[in-house]
Computed example of a mutant assay.
Amino acid sequence: MRRVILYIATSLDGYIARPNGDTSWLHDERYSLEGEDFGYGALLQSIDTTLMGYKTYQVILGFDMPFPYPDKVNYVLSRSPHADAAHVQFVQEDATVFVRNLKRQQGKNIWLIGGGQVNTLLLKAGLIDEFIITYVPVILGDGIPLFAQGTPEKQLHVLESKSFRNGFVQLWMQP
């Protein structure tokens, strides 16, 4: 069975973006390390599918670059109807049913890109198999949380932790 991997960065206070969806704080030059991709390349090699919420998709479209995952099957979960776009299929059906079925299909792992609402929904349904969370040494004070308010308590088993010279700390965990 395919695995759903939540690979994401968060501020020390638990936000994945500013209130308006801005993630520019992740790309601060101070955090750049020559030759280090924080496991991103290995993640991309292990997946053939991405899964994201509509707001996250809109943030990605706002980057000044072409769509970054054209060689993957990309699903965008949305409550509203949208016509499929280049490299993207929109999913309006129940997200938990969709992801359960997706996990049963043949293929590589599935990258859960986010955001907070989708993360919470799939966490509550027990559909996230791995968590690779990178903590960035910044406090945003407000924003879009990694998991929405009301998320139930969930114990995770830490498989590995890594610290980087730039202050990032990455945890690899499983339920």
Rank of each mutant, 00 (worst) to 15 (best):
D64V: 14
E36G: 04
S163V: 15
F168T: 02
L26Y: 09
M173P: 09
W172C: 03
P70H: 10
F67Q: 06
Q105P: 09
T10N: 00
I128G: 05
E29N: 07
Y31Q: 01
K103G: 14
F164V: 02
K72T: 08
Q92K: 11
L6R: 05
D71P: 10
T96C: 09
D142A: 10
G35E: 01
D48G: 11
I47F: 08
S161R: 13
I128N: 02
K72H: 13
S46R: 01
G62M: 08
P81L: 00
D129H: 06
V59Q: 07
F98R: 02
G21K: 00
G21E: 02
L171Q: 03
E93C: 07
L171Y: 15
G35C: 06
G41R: 15
R2G: 03
E93K: 11
K55S: 13
I47A: 10
D37T: 07
M173Q: 12
M52Y: 12
Q174F: 03
T151M: 03
I139S: 08
V97A: 11
K72Q: 07
Y40I: 07
N74P: 04
D13W: 14
E29F: 01
A9M: 05
I132L: 07
M173I: 08
V169R: 12
L12F: 05
G21S: 01
K108N: 05
N74S: 05
F168M: 10
L159V: 14
V99Y: 06
Y40L: 10
G143P: 02
Y7S: 00
D22P: 06
G126C: 04
I113Q: 03
R100G: 08
L127A: 00
A17S: 04
S78M: 08
Q155E: 15
V158C: 14
